[in-house]
Nucleic acid binder design. Structure first.
Lengths: 252, 252
DNA sequence: CCGATTTTGTTCTCACGTTCACAAGCTCCT
DNA sequence: AGGAGCTTGTGAACGTGAGAACAAAATCGG
């Protein structure tokens, strides 16, 4: 057995074979870079090469890879195919994941047609929408089905990942239904904060938030002094406290 | 004058009025939560209320807001309208940002129709594509124009933000053209690592990466022991080192 | 006018992430 | 066989982020 491991200060808490979140988020980038190198017929690559291809620095890349194991050869580098397989396995894309997309608006359409899924371990098994005028529409090789069939589909196809591309309004309800049906990972494109029980993972992609972050940096590039002056305090700051500040009301 | 401020260890380095990146990334979330509260007719909210609506804890929210200034009232809370304006101003969405979208495939279509932009300080001034069969197509109130007109449009409309929704192949070239034309912020949906000169900000949204991160966590939920065994070392590990490891070749 | 109550703004501490720098280990050449 | 030259893997230092906890400030009731 291992001798009583005392927590060294500064070391990330990691359970057995647990990989830091920041590293997990970069593994898919490495995977893509390796695939590109492989397609170019390159069989071996140093951490420096890989790092450039992935857009990170080589020290970070080496440390990230070291969490997976010792898959390189000192003095040589990494075998592209071998490392690619190891990362794919660690992420879990060597197996197939069944995905449902809920909300077939513009974005749902786009995702349904996106070829990047199938080639990377994800299989879209159903497109769902509650709008009867959309049900039955053909998109690529798939047909839009009624949202009411959700539970049946999740159960029979062992769906564990759901993608929400509805408007903000129905998103939480859709989310609840997904979770109740047995989905344990959700990718949310709707501009709301969804609440899910413990054990369900959720990730959010928000186009307007990304733009706003860019805008912030853009603003300070172009004339820091051009900021508008801070306006007067509003008159409403007095005599309002009798109005009870309602808890939640939006995201909860 | 302030007495010679010695850097206290552990304090984030921040230039005058500079806000930590992690905070900047959350400000748009707060902004949205405040807008929702405002629409519900709520005039005052405590940090606790706001935090629930934004999906963070209240200590973090208060600290984030404190970087902007002292906009709350102790014992009372925050005036929703006032705080909303202050955050909007800090982000820079009180002014209008001109945006071009390059690559009018499925995703470009979806973004062109996305109403969330106009209402949040962003104005799409052009949809561009190099494919002649797309040029001239109407999308909503806009018409797809030729990518060759890029420079002209960027100059005349003072465009500072570009959105790339092309396939991976042409993305770097499109990026270079955008930068050369004067665009200094780029939102990239293409699955490649783009390289840009200093002074240009770039953010990436990648659907398949998000799914892969979910897959990783999903894999460890369902049966940790179900991981496939680590396969044998590949035979290719010997006698390959004469092949020069090409530098870059993909992302650069 | 004063104390009780509420809620902010801030400090302190710990955890996490990144980067540097170097020993360990592999290959090649003489 | 032995040394020179690379490149990985990792220990240690540094910087950033998160959360608990509390003092400061505002309102309310008597």
């Amino acid at each position: 057995m291992t001798p009583a491991r005392s927590r060294r200060p500064g070391a990330p808490t990691r359970t057995e074979r647990g990989i830091p979140e920041a590293t997990v988020a970069r593994l898919p980038v490495y995977l893509r870079a390796l695939t590109a190198l492989s397609d170019s017929g390159i069989a071996t690559a140093s951490s420096e090469d890989l790092a450039t291809a992935a857009g990170v620095n080589s020290a970070k890349l080496r440390k990230d890879l070291s969490y997976l194991g010792s898959y390189g050869t000192r003095g040589v580098g990494y075998d592209v195919e071998y490392l690619r397989y190891q990362i794919a396995r660690e992420i879990g894309v060597t197996q197939d994941w069944a995905v449902v997309i809920v909300g077939i608006g513009n974005l749902g359409h786009a995702l349904a047609n996106y070829s990047g899924f199938g080639t990377r371990g994800f299989r879209i098994v159903a497109l769902l929408d509650a709008d009867p005028s959309l049900v039955g529409e053909r998109i690529g090789e798939m047909v839009v089905r009624d949202f009411a069939e959700l539970e049946e589909i999740v159960a029979s196809d062992r769906v564990s990942i759901g993608v929400i591309t509805t408007p903000a309004g129905p998103a939480q309800e859709v989310c609840d239904r997904l979770v109740a049906a047995g989905v344990t990972s959700i990718l949310n494109f709707a501009p709301v904060v969804l609440s899910v029980p413990d054990g369900v993972d959720i990730r959010k992609v928000d186009l307007s938030i990304e733009l706003q972050i860019l805008a912030y940096h853009e603003q300070r590039k172009s004339g820091e002094a051009a900021l508008p002056e801070v306006p007067e305090l509003p008159a409403t700051m007095n005599g309002l406290t009798d109005l009870p500040s309602v808890g939640g009301g939006v995201g909860a």
